[in-house]
Design a protein around this nucleic acid. Structure first.
Lengths: 179, 179
DNA sequence: CCTTGCCATGCAACTAGTTGCATGGGTACG
DNA sequence: CGTACCCATGCAACTAGTTGCATGGCAAGG
């Protein structure tokens, strides 16, 4: 399970509440790991029990206490252990590819492909803007930012690939049905 | 859930036992959907209860009956319905990207990246061999094979992208630490 | 003052997927 | 004759992730 490790990475950069983490998972970290707030709270509780994070509690009246989590030494150790083990190949699961393979309704698939293409373009724009802003000179990325930079590059390459695939699909399915 | 739909697509091509399906999920369909035999048997049972597939039972002595599943009209309808609905963007979850982002141990990551690169190369070779064998002329792919062809193209593009990403990572992490 | 939206937490019920185990026949090789 | 490998099915226990719901403060704008 890597949600725990994604949280640890995020806490290494900056201590945070569950809510903060959920927002980070909607942004930067969310480029390669999605998580709902429910799952984050659940996981944080388990991680605290395991001693990987520690919480500073700020009591609030009338509502639940605010808990800010920080990574512990045990958490850092666990992160190192995790980094050392070979990462399993991602189980790729694509509803879209299943549909495409079935090709039950060309019109519906063309429509879906256009939607996906637009989504890829939108994300690519965001990633590229982020890259330009944070790392204007790719050859001069600071040591401690290199991981984040390379992860972002993965996002960029992945979106570009998605666009190229959509273009191939549209080319094959549109122009041919027009003829 | 698309495992059900992946099974339906597979059964559209050819009726099969759970065991057959498990092997298909280790090969062609497995390019974009993985499933263990346990999960396939469980899902087939549910699909039969839902009337999407029907089983022909061949009794065997001493061991469990052999069941060959075929898609039903209701199954075909469900597949059409599924194709018509927009496919959700895949939740991308990458242990590797999490590790990379953390960048806790450069040596370990370089090693892991090399392993991943080799895996991508191996898969790319397989996919390209498969493409060459089944679709020697991409412009002359038969109508009913177009979906499978385009899905395979997705696999090819995806592996190429993976290799390119690994190369970037290795370039940044290796040459720089050598200096 | 009321609504909208952000800050902040969490439970409960469910679905999907993984891991480990169990059974047993047939066929091919040494 | 043993062993290994393919064919074939499935249960049980567990882990991860989703969906829906509930609570409540505080600030800004109309």
């Amino acid at each position: 399970m890597a949600l725990e490790h994604a949280i640890l990475v995020s806490l290494t950069e900056q201590a945070a509440t569950g809510y903060d983490l959920a927002r980070r998972f909607d942004a930067s970290i969310g480029y390669f790991w999605r998580a709902s707030h429910q799952q984050i709270y659940k996981t944080l509780a388990r991680m605290e029990a395991d001693g990987w994070v520690s919480a500073t509690i700020e009591p609030r009246e009338g509502t639940a206490d605010k808990k800010t989590y920080a990574i512990t030494d045990a958490g850092r150790e666990e992160l190192t252990r995790f980094t050392a083990e070979p990462s399993p190949r991602e189980a790729l699961r694509s509803d879209f590819a299943v549909k495409l393979r079935g090709l039950a309704d060309v019109t519906a698939i063309v429509e879906d492909t256009r939607r996906r293409r637009a989504d890829h373009v939108e994300r690519l724009d965001r990633y590229e803007a982020s890259a330009k802003r944070h790392y204007p000179d790719p050859d001069a990325v600071e040591e401690r930012e290199r991981g984040a930079y390379l992860a972002l590059r993965g996002g960029i390459l992945s979106e570009r690939m998605g666009i190229a695939w959509c273009d191939e699909i549209l080319d094959q399915l549109e122009t041919r049905s027009d003829r």
